[in-house]
Design a protein around this nucleic acid. Structure first.
Lengths: 117, 117
DNA sequence: TCCGGACATGCACAGATGTGAATATACACG
DNA sequence: CGTGTATATTCACATCTGTGCATGTCCGGA
């Protein structure tokens, strides 16, 4: 009698059902998007507004092919939105919560004192 | 003149230096810890206080070997702390910010409407 | 000191994933 | 329509990482 709060069903000798599914979806979307350093860098690049692919490449000094691949992943995970304007494609965050989350993760890192690398 | 705020050095035709390093450390610690669904589940298990390895195994229905491996990763990343009591080892979060971050990531997932899987 | 339970570690392997090279597609312009 | 620029996609490959199995270590009890 110390858990089982917040609307989740607890199956004894089993797993919390809805919470389990929720976390698996969390992993396959947001967490998987953050599981590569370059993708985090790209998201950070979009912090202050939309950027074209070429602008991101220049800011991060990365080849275009690679940036397009990562942007494709981020879009498939639903974290960024793309808008075409003539020859250029501009990417932007679907929500400011994305960078808010990154900032909170940085806070977590700092409170954990990052023991080893 | 649209970026370069918050104490980071911007190298034109280069990359933001200190921010770059910060994000790479973020990835190799916190984000890498969250890059596996079972590890997120384990962290969620510790939300309300410390648990022994056996308790975590039972709650998540996972083999002990596997749980120990993941706990080893989480400890090496600095997200959990371990305490030995007789034959048992109790794990706990180093900071409540860990689950706060997970909760915010869930919020991000929900705002992005998770388009595909 | 021997035994059993709790937990950790090393190893081998399969599956996932980031990367570059080459190529394809979309668009503007003349 | 042909050319150049911007971006996306496919493919092959090297690397990483989660997993199970077997084993090792730590601890308490008889």
């Amino acid at each position: 009698m110390d858990m089982g709060v917040e609307g989740s069903v607890v199956c004894h000798s089993g797993v919390m059902k809805t919470r389990n599914d929720e976390i698996h979806r969390l992993h396959s979307t947001v967490c998987k998007a953050l599981s590569d350093p370059k993708r985090i860098l790209i998201l950070d690049t979009l912090r202050h507004g939309e950027r074209s692919v070429g602008e991101i490449c220049e800011m991060l000094d990365l080849p275009q092919t690679n940036v397009s691949q990562h942007l494709g992943v981020l879009r498939s995970k639903g974290l960024v939105h793309s808008r075409r304007d003539a020859q250029w494609v501009y990417y932007s965050l679907v929500s400011p919560k994305v960078t808010e989350a990154i900032d909170l993760l940085v806070e977590v890192m700092e409170t954990t004192k990052t023991p080893n690398v």
